[in-house]
Design a protein around this nucleic acid. Structure first.
Length: 441
RNA sequence: UCCCCGAUAACUCAGUUGGUAGAGUAGGCGGCUGUUAACCGCCCUGUCGCAAGUUCGAGUCUUGCUCGGGGAGCCA
């Protein structure tokens, strides 16, 4: 015997969220104290366990003196087991409460730095390991989790196969300055991948439609609310699809994910004080503007943009305007985009690509394109932009064995979550953000 | 990389024409039989980012440095 005969099986332990229909029953809960309060001979203990929050009521006549006195040791974040009778309560925000009979302190906590009062960004980020426990962060990461689940569900329903790409690579990508490099044994320099796209393209010839999801690294010295040096990107690649199919898939995916979040995370959205009406804008058909049209619209609004320039952050905000409907901008100038994008047969100065701009000033959340499927054109583009051909030989090779029209896109998860949650700076949407000025904790 | 702003108690901040620092919160003690960021009373809290300079005297003025924030470019 192991002395644990009475142990409750891991998946049968009661959670705070399960207590609503258990009034009158005696239950034992484990969790962390998030507030205490006393008033005369009645004392309150706020307990959270990740599934929810509840209040325990400690009444002097209901418990022995030792238990009653234990209250003074319950500081914020003390880990306890609290047992008692579940009872209905209309006097607090939890609906039910526990009339406490027993308390066991599992582990003490003293002077927890993050209080329910105000804190600055620097302080919170330096205490990120503790900040994650707060209500807003809890809501945020539950939604992030739901977004990831939603994307996976969508791809599963449409028979996409997950084919993850390597993080260590020798492909330079678009901008050598944006790469983190490291020495790779005797084989010289390797880099942390900026994208899995090229590898994903190889997989479409095996599976047709594929996706990958993993961290991506950019060493760009960007200091904005929309940049991280390490972020999570979901990328998809589809055989036989042109750039219009590509936009259709993206639109369906985003709508699917938003619907799921609205249906299943309303409580978390409320905690974040997110205006859900704003999210319902994506139930409308997305607006699709060609780059040419976008430039005209921007010029009419007084923006200093010339044909050929990439869109800036303010341009993106101007384009989405007051509308709550996401906007695709397609067929950008070739010189503003990456070498692998397919040249537009109708206008060779442009490529068949599309960026999806989220409304409310959140800006670009997806970048996608139809890929160059001609070996000849791809090689000339690689040379044209001045990249070495050797590391891309395998990629070019794909165009020699049954090349096919294909398209794909990449979603920046933190940007998507930032928009859905109405979070200003995306550093809050990843558990441990990595930025130019911060790698701790 | 460029432009702008900041650094004072554990946290958020105030600090007058230069005269050895103050509030709220947190923490400690006490009060109140139902608290919701409770309330009331008392107590505690300092390398004023670092270094130099001006001055009888610097949190305050000057210079340099460090760290952080906001924005731009670039991108997802």
């Amino acid at each position: 015997m192991d002395g644990q005969e009475n142990k409750i099986k891991w998946n049968e332990r009661i959670k705070i969220k399960d207590l609503k229909d258990k009034t009158g029953q005696i239950h034992s809960l484990t969790g962390w104290v998030f507030f205490t309060r006393k008033s005369g001979n009645i004392r309150f203990i706020g307990l959270r366990d990740g599934s929810g929050k509840i209040q325990g009521v400690l009444v002097k006549e209901e418990v022995d003196q030792a238990t009653y006195d234990l209250f003074t040791r319950l500081k914020q974040e003390t880990c306890i087991q609290m047992s008692g009778i579940v009872q209905e309560s209309k006097r607090n925000r939890f609906g039910v409460e526990i009339l406490v009979k027993e308390i066991e302190i599992i582990s003490i906590s003293e002077n927890f730095p993050i209080t329910p009062k105000e804190h600055g960004t620097d302080f919170l980020l330096s205490n990120r390991h503790l900040w994650l426990r707060s209500s807003r962060q809890l809501a945020l990461f539950n939604i992030r989790n739901k977004v990831i689940q939603g994307m996976r569900d969508f791809f599963a329903q449409h028979d996409f196969v997950q084919m993850d790409s390597p993080i260590l690579t020798q492909n330079v990508g678009e901008d050598p300055k944006g790469l983190f490099n490291l020495s790779y044994f005797d084989l010289g320099e390797a880099y942390l991948a900026q994208t899995g796209q090229l590898y994903l393209e190889a997989s479409i010839f095996a599976h047709g439609n594929v996706f990958c999801f993993g961290p991506t690294f950019r060493a760009e010295k960007s200091k904005t609310r929309r940049h991280l040096t390490e972020f999570w990107m979901l990328e998809a690649e589809m055989a036989f699809m042109d750039n219009v199919d590509n936009m259709d898939v993206q639109e369906d995916l985003i709508r699917f994910v938003i619907t799921k979040v609205l249906d299943e995370c309303s409580w978390h959205l409320k905690e974040l004080e997110r205006d859900v009406e704003a999210l319902k804008g994506c139930m409308e058909p997305f607006i699709r503007l060609s780059y040419d049209e976008a430039v005209v619209i921007l010029q009419n609004k007084g923006a200093k943009i010339n044909w050929g320039d990439d869109l800036g952050a303010t341009d993106e905000t101007l384009l989405t305007g007051d509308s709550l409907v996401p906007v695709f901008v397609y067929d950008y100038p070739k010189k503003a985009k990456a070498f692998y994008m397919k040249e537009n047969p109708l206008n060779p100065k442009t490529v068949k690509c599309a960026d999806l701009l989220a409304p409310e000033g959140y800006g670009e959340i997806i970048g996608g394109s139809q890929r160059e499927d001609s070996e000849e054109k791809l090689v000339s583009r690689i040379l044209e932009v001045g990249l070495p051909i050797e590391p891309y030989q395998w990629y070019v090779d794909l165009r020699r064995y049954g090349s096919v029209k294909h398209s794909g896109f990449g979603i920046g998860l933190e940007r998507l979550v930032g928009w859905i949650c109405g979070i200003h700076h995306i550093r809050e949407t990843i558990p441990f953000p990595r930025m130019m000025e911060r790698v701790y904790p």
